[in-house]
Amino acid sequence: MRSPAYIGRPRITIRQLFLFILLALLALSQLFPLVWLFNYSLQKSGDLFGKEIFKLPDVPQWQNYIRAWRDGRIMQYLTNSVIVVAFSILLIMIFSFMLAYACTRMKWKLRNIVYGFVLMGMVIPIHTTLLPNFIWFKNFSLIDTRAGVIIPYIAFNMAFSVLLFRGFLASIPYAMEESAYLDGASARIILMRIIAPMAKTGFVTVGITAFLNCWNEFIMANTFLSSEVKRTLPFSIIRFQGQYASDYAVQFACMVIVAIIPIIIYFLFSKWIIAGVTAGSVKG
């Protein structure tokens, strides 16, 4: 804002107007499909077939949501998602914190090899484990169990989480641990009482990234969980489409319900997502 053109009364230049229109169009293209979805979730299915591009509901059909919730068995799928995701996030945070601590602040010969192996996890596509794990997990009776998806969720979130934690751990001064070790504190106390609280932001960032990854994961859940009572939230949409194929409005309501939870979480934690990306892409 230092250039002479901006001194005095603010004037809108053609370039600014162009930028404004560009940003507005982009915002529209990212949001309008979701608004469209929400809008028609409140109408009767037949309204969708009208000529107009967009039409507000005459009378909002909130009962679509009641039907979606009930017939889509949202409560059951939601509970399953919460159980699977909660265990996954908790274990991802603990395991990757421990691994990152050993790989960042401790000195040992195989450190770089182990760290390199962990990072490889980021390049391996989950899809390459779908076929072999289908047979391999049978040996351990893990097919169609929650553990059978929690374990691969942990495995595939390790690389990125360790990378994130390393960024946060590297910035903690060594003096902290040194004095504690000299005072004779045990490693467990030091990790839990000194290091972990200082890497608080790391925990939130890893937690939220892992949440988005696991909460939205579909293909492993689809392959490994076969019984209806164990499946996770994205299935309510698939199941609903199968059963109420022509009931578009209720399908839309079901999709809105599934979409709303990560949106709420995102608004609560968006600051940390950005912190995580910064740590991961710039420092890492």
Binding site: Q30, F218, A259, Y266, S270
Partner: peptide, 11 residues
């Protein structure tokens, strides 16, 4: 701009 990115691929 980030909202679509956080939604599940199924939705």
């Amino acid at each position: 701009f980030f909202i679509p990115a956080i939604l599940t691929v199924v939705v």
